[in-house]
Design a protein around this nucleic acid. Sequence first.
DNA 1: TTTAAAACATGATATTTATCAGGTTTTCTA
DNA 2: TAGAAAACCTGATAAATATCATGTTTTAAA
Lengths: 249, 249
Amino acid sequence: MIFIRFSIYLKSNPPNIMSKCEQCIVRQFTSLKHLSKEEVVRMSKCKTSKIIKKGDVLFEEGTPINGIFCIKDGVCKVSKMSENGRNQIISLIQRGDLLGERSLISDEVSNLSAVALNDMEVCFIPKEEIIRDLQRNNAFSMSVLRDLATSLKNADNLIVDMAQKTVKQRLAETLLYLHTKFDTNSEGAIDIQLSREDFSNIIGTATESAIRLLSEFKKKKIIAFKGKNIMILDSASLEKIAQGFHNLL
Amino acid sequence: MIFIRFSIYLKSNPPNIMSKCEQCIVRQFTSLKHLSKEEVVRMSKCKTSKIIKKGDVLFEEGTPINGIFCIKDGVCKVSKMSENGRNQIISLIQRGDLLGERSLISDEVSNLSAVALNDMEVCFIPKEEIIRDLQRNNAFSMSVLRDLATSLKNADNLIVDMAQKTVKQRLAETLLYLHTKFDTNSEGAIDIQLSREDFSNIIGTATESAIRLLSEFKKKKIIAFKGKNIMILDSASLEKIAQGFHNLL
DNA sequence: TTTAAAACATGATATTTATCAGGTTTTCTA
DNA sequence: TAGAAAACCTGATAAATATCATGTTTTAAA
């Protein structure tokens, strides 16, 4: 058992931290795949790799980022403080995602914070390098344009959900989203650990409300807890709840 | 009096509908200002101008747009249907804004609907033309990239507000936003007409709740109604309310 | 100009959600 | 490994908001 775990660890977390971008598989999942061979070599030379521990901050709202992060492994939550003093999680970012494009393009301090949800391996590419590539490589800038367009579409959907749906609907929606976005672990549970407070910060509610609703879903056998992870037992019910059929359950 | 009105009409609504992009002032407010002389001439030849009456639809959620709109005059509301069957207004678009970039870039049907709030004058530039310019003119594509980045930042802010703020806070926020975004008319009121239902669709609440809160603000002399338009009397109070100081008022 | 429809308004009530207050369990750290 | 801190949980209550019902005013259309 330990042996199996170890082999999985090796697979998703290659210890070769300072590997070159030329050979990096993760790059192929991102807009960076449109860079030319020379551009990749240049990038590889100026990039830095970092290990970020669970709970550590990648960057903080109001501070300059000065580059973009390419996520090689792990997951982080991206959030923003509300004037009410509560944190709102805007998105979850994982392996194969880029992070920080927006601030780089607008040349502004970050409007968001990013905190690791588990141990992460990320590469940081300095601003000048990316700006240079954006200005010279049209395939690359078009790809970034498409990424931003997708983010904007997702943001629009989130606005509507936040404005119109009940807390219960939003929780159901979130669970379904996690189910599709993240892998399933050996126990059949979603392979991401979110605290009850994280859940409340995703759906925009009081922590107690998130706890109560999760308990309710558990009692109704819609979800189950496998340690700190959640397993979806009845996604059909979750879909109905997300669409607003509360009373039928 | 009629004469004065007529002269204002001429100023903001030049009857020369089919004017050339080369001479169009509005183009200078948009990313289209980065196009070369030749590109502008090409665009001018393939663009179409339209008059859109108050209440008319520019495009509908789920349908292809096949180009972008450049707003020469008037205002429209951009909204999306929630699964709950209620409409959520995502943004208000006015003179000098472009509309439809996102769908064009992602090559998808629109995720949003746009409806005129007053009589509008818009130009429509077909997709092929814009895509061509995006691919060849880097200053232009970088500018569109910055536009999308700004939209994304605004969307993030809206998500947080919708998720964390009360309906009263959101209404105060909306009124302040309208005050900064739109001009003031001759009576000192905000020069845009939104129905109570529009307000409820902006802040994401029941129409009755929007009505009640607007009445409350009126009773407390924070706003006043000038016909169908709203005048801000006490923006300091609105700011406090938006930040969550409800009970002090 | 009359009439129908839409928009606006308000009260009563039900539902949803937050807050407060008090617990238990788990996790971290000295 | 003990003790502290964090996370989790539950009940009681208050506050915010939606819903329903009903009436008035304004707008648009015949």
